[in-house]
Design a protein around this nucleic acid. Structure first.
Length: 335
DNA sequence: CACACACCCTGTTTGC
DNA sequence: TGCAAACAGGGTGTGT
């Protein structure tokens, strides 16, 4: 479930289940799902079995689980990194349950309070992956990603594990935290920019990079090293909301239009999050296999032929970057 | 260097 | 009904 809101829904669901849980048994049914793991399959299994998971963290569309190894020889502060790709799911199952049809990796956990839990990595297209990775300190000293119980702030199962991470950035001071994993990021994720809901998101850098490229705004929004968490749906939705054409050269945006765009991106992501993410079918679900409702709130994505909710002009779909781009030809003009 | 594109995959939906 | 093509929300490596 690829974009930020869907991945955050998954992360929030996993957080109470994995925090403090010990990995009992790991089964890899599809070796290609470990493509990004640096080492053989047995290495992945052996290093994980017996490990204690410390949290569920997310930056953009990347998820990771810092863990404490049981055995010797494990480098300090490793993490299990998961990326869902186009079709990945992480589901919480009963340890006695039958395997899901497209199950690729299975982690059986025992949690000190919740007991036995199975973490099932299901992925149709195998674009997603799991890997054990080492971590490095964040360049800015801030928390590496989001790791509280819920970004919406109304979960009851926080267990006091919250890392300060408010929606509105306040004064930025590097985090002082006894848990070293908080400010460490997996090397595979280190090049990914912070996402727009991250209080340490560097707005100045975002605007500067937009101003420094001639490529279209949509392409820039999909560039995860510029800003993370935005995929095809939320790019189209944000651009529609800001009335910007996706092929408008990034460096031709005025500063105020760029600011408006960022405001709309945050609004769209936050709304989608509040509705549990977007899903068109059983593919995009939370850890309990349930779908979100944001598909009912889409204004542009997948709405080709339907009237623009603002002006009534039919929404157009065009092929772009091997993907569909949906926009209102009247509200979103190239200029 | 910045940019554009091919490629990695399988299952479901669409169209003939 | 059967079959093939088109399609899917992502990231990375390679070539120009």
């Amino acid at each position: 479930m690829p974009e930020l809101p869907e991945v955050e829904v998954v992360r929030a669901g996993l957080h109470p289940a994995v925090t403090g849980a010990v990995v009992r048994r790991v089964v890899v049914l599809e070796p290609r799902s470990l493509r990004r793991h640096d080492g053989p399959l047995e290495d992945f299994v052996d290093r994980l079995e017996g490990a204690t998971l410390q949290s569920a963290v997310r930056r953009g569309k990347f998820l990771w689980f810092p863990f404490e190894a049981s055995g010797q020889g494990e480098p300090a502060h490793p993490a299990l990194v998961a990326h869902l790709g186009m079709s990945g799911q992480v589901l919480l199952r009963d340890t006695a349950a039958d395997d899901d049809r497209l199950l690729r990796v299975r982690l059986d956990l025992v949690h000190p309070r919740h007991g036995d839990i199975r973490l099932a990595f299901v992925d149709q297209r195998i674009f997603g992956s799991m890997a054990i990775d080492s971590t490095v300190p964040t360049a800015d000293g801030f928390a590496a990603g989001y790791s509280s119980a819920s970004i919406l702030g109304h979960s009851s199962d926080d267990e006091g594990e919250s890392v300060p991470f408010s929606r509105t950035p306040t004064v930025e001071t590097p985090v002082q935290d006894a848990r070293p994993w908080v400010t460490r990021i997996p090397t595979q994720v280190a090049h990914i920019a912070r996402d727009p809901l991250d209080p340490a998101f560097d707005e100045g850098r975002f605007f500067a990079r937009l101003a420094a490229t001639r490529s279209g705004v949509k392409r820039a929004l999909l560039d995860q090293t510029l800003v993370s968490g935005i995929g095809n749906i939320y790019a189209d939705e944000s651009l529609w909301a800001a009335k910007i054409h996706g092929e408008q050269p990034s460096n031709s945006l005025t500063r105020s239009r760029a600011r408006l765009l960022l405001v709309e991106i945050r609004a769209v992501l936050y709304r989608a999050l509040a509705e549990g993410g977007t899903s068109f079918d059983a593919q995009y679900v939370n850890v309990n296999g349930q779908s979100g409702y944001f598909s009912h709130s889409l204004n542009a994505y997948g709405q080709q032929g339907k009237p623009c909710p603002r002006c009534g002009t039919p929404i157009v779909r065009e092929q772009f970057m091997n993907r569909g781009s949906h926009f209102c030809p009247r509200c979103q003009r190239l200029r």
